[in-house]
Amino acid sequence: MSQPVSALRPDLQMIADWVSPGSRVLDLGCGEGDLLAWLQAHKQVSAYGVDFDVNNVVRCVAANVNAIQGDLEAGLAEFADQRFDHVVLSQTIQAMHNTEQILLEMLRVGREAIVTFPNFGYWENRWQILKGRMPVSDDMPYQWYNTPNIHWCMLGDFDELCAKNGLRVLERVVMTGGRRVTFLPNLRGSLAFYRVTRG
């Protein structure tokens, strides 16, 4: 019954690899539902997505993804405690006002949070700053005056935020251009992936 699902974007595939088959998944900022549609087809998850944009909700509906229209900044009141195995926040945390709150909310409603964000410490960003300009790249495709991204961080910053809230980092992966980076990740990695749980 599920429609054929095309290949996932590499960063979403990375997230999908962390999701256990048959689990309960909540995707915050689910967009058009690509990740959840793939997970439903390939890992038989039961899933909900949340998105602010009604047009995304419509596309999710078309893709047979349960989408709930809502504002993440307002918290996750629709979801009861520990309802999910995985709660995903993909490249969204840097655009949120209530950064710390959403992280805690994710671990209220779920056992494990998967958070991804563009690494501000990536060498190309540093290089652009050295040249006297705010960084613009594939993962950060905005100018300073129109960027929705208001809370930039590097790997160490996110580690510290987790530690401050008593959260345990289960796994961290850093990628550039769809490939994993293990050597000098905070310098050579453009996208960070974290699996986090309560301490």
């Binding site: 909700v57 419509v58 349960n66 989408a67 709930i68 229209q69 629709e78 979801f79 009861a80």
Partner: peptide
């Protein structure tokens, strides 16, 4: 409507919710 949605999610039902402008 959110009350209904919240209860449906808590009951583990398949639900989509839109808040139309």
């Amino acid at each position: 409507s959110r009350e209904t949605v919240k209860a449906l999610i808590a009951a583990g039902k398949r639900v989509a919710y839109a808040e139309i402008e």
